[in-house]
């Protein structure tokens, strides 16, 4: 594993994208930064601009308007970048599967590296998910 990849795993900056979620996953994601969970320990920071991001945390059930934006935004992330779907909505669209405004699931829009299920997943689960993903990438 090259030094650069090693560094990437030690300092993943996350950008958080909500695509029509109920806010719960978003709030729990933010919660990860706060004193009880403090992900800065692992070098995880919340990036303001998508061009600084290494990991995209996507939540929500991808409604029509945000799905469109999601595609353009994925283009704008500097590669290599990981995509993590947070919450059941990103995986199966949960209760919103029949909604007229949520036509396609997330992985039909952009490639997803990992899902963290739960409605909402607990902050611990989010951290565990991201750390597992990092481990997986680290092993190759």
């Amino acid at each position: 594993m090259s030094l650069k990849l090693k560094a990437l795993l030690k300092s993943p900056w996350v950008f958080h994208l909500s695509t029509g979620s109920c806010n719960n996953c978003d709030i729990e994601t933010l919660d990860c930064l706060t004193p009880r969970f403090d992900v800065e320990r692992f070098g995880i920071l919340l990036a303001g601009s998508i061009k600084h991001a290494d990991v995209l945390l996507v939540s929500g059930s991808c409604n029509r308007m945000s799905a469109e934006k999601l595609k353009t935004l994925y283009e704008q992330v500097p590669k290599p970048c990981l995509v993590v779907g947070i919450g059941t909505c990103t995986g199966s669209r949960g209760i919103f599967i029949d909604s007229y405004n949520c036509p396609v699931p997330l992985d039909k829009i952009i490639p997803v590296d990992a899902y963290i299920p739960g409605c909402p997943p607990k902050p611990e689960a989010i951290i565990a998910g991201v750390v597992k993903l990092i481990e997986k990438v680290g092993k190759g």
Partner: peptide, 9 residues
């Protein structure tokens, strides 16, 4: 950007 049609659901 957040409209999910919950009323219909």
């Amino acid at each position: 950007y957040n409209h999910r049609g919950i009323e219909k659901l």
